Structures are given as C-alpha cells and as structure tokens.
Amino acid sequence: MADPLSTGLIAASIMLAIGIAAFASLRGWQGWLDLKRMELVSGRGDVMLPPSGGRIEIADLKERVRKLEAIADGIDL
C-alpha cells in the first residue's frame, strides 16, 4: 500500500499547482479588466493602433504613382 507521507506530498503538490494556476489566471483577468477600464475612460471602445509600416507603404505607393505618371507622360526616369 502507498505510504501516507508520499500520498500527502502528492496531494500537497497538486494543491500548490492548482493554487499557482488560479493565481496566474486571476492576475490575467485583472489585467484584462484594467485594459477595458482604460478603454472606457479614454472614450474609445476599440483601441487599434495603425501599423507601423503604414506611412512607409503610403510613401511607396506615392512613388509608384509618380513613376507611372512619368511613364504615361513619356518622360524617361
């Protein structure tokens, strides 16, 4: 039969693991709630930042349009 000490250690380690998982889950939940509170205070429901490459893409598209207009006008670049 199993030793009572080892059974107790296994039970204690399982309880400790459940406690750690519960603590981590509650911290994540509190972080999510804080984020939602900040969004409500700022007046915006959905905080979406533009992609960092957005300006670069627009500049690239403007350059392409300029080159295409130059080709259409018959100017050699």
Rank of each mutant, 00 (worst) to 15 (best):
D46W: 01
P51C: 00
M38D: 14
T7L: 06
L9Q: 12
G43R: 08
A12Y: 08
R27E: 10
E69V: 00
A17K: 01
G28S: 05
A11R: 09
L68K: 07
D73L: 02
T7A: 02
G74K: 05
G54W: 12
I14N: 13
A22K: 11
A12S: 01
D60H: 12
P50F: 02
W32Y: 03
S13R: 05
G74R: 08
L77G: 01
W32H: 02
A22C: 07
D34S: 13
K67Q: 08
I58K: 14
A24I: 06
I75L: 08
K62P: 00
L61G: 01
I18Y: 06
S42I: 02
D60Q: 14
S6V: 15
K36E: 11
F23N: 00
K62L: 14
A11M: 07
K67L: 15
G28I: 00
L16Q: 13
L68Q: 05
G45D: 14
E69W: 01
G8P: 01
I56G: 11
P50K: 14
W32K: 04
D60Y: 06
A59I: 15
V65H: 04
E57H: 07
D76Q: 06
R27F: 11
D3S: 10
S42V: 03
A70E: 09
A22N: 04
L68G: 03
I10A: 15
I10E: 13
P50Q: 12
D76H: 11
L68M: 01
S52F: 08
L33V: 07
E63H: 01
L26T: 11
R66S: 08
R37Q: 14
S25W: 01
I14T: 11
I14G: 07
A21F: 12
I10C: 03
W32L: 09
P4A: 12
A24C: 00
I75P: 00
I58Y: 02
S52W: 06
F23Y: 08
L35M: 05
L35V: 04
I14W: 04
G74D: 00
A70G: 03
L77C: 02
L16G: 14
W29V: 12
P51N: 09
S6K: 13
R55L: 15
L40H: 08
R66E: 04
L61R: 10
S13W: 01
A72E: 10
A59W: 10
V47C: 01
I18N: 05
L68P: 01
D60W: 04
K36W: 09
S13G: 07
L26N: 10
L77A: 14
I71M: 08
S52V: 13
D73S: 10
I20M: 06
G31T: 08
A24N: 01
A72H: 06
K62A: 14
V41Y: 11
M15Q: 07
W29C: 00
D60R: 14
S13M: 10
L16N: 09
R66T: 03
K62I: 10
G19L: 05
G19Q: 00
I20F: 07
A17H: 04
A72P: 00
S52T: 06
R55V: 13
D3C: 02
P50W: 05
I18W: 09
A24K: 01
L61P: 00
V65G: 04
S52D: 09
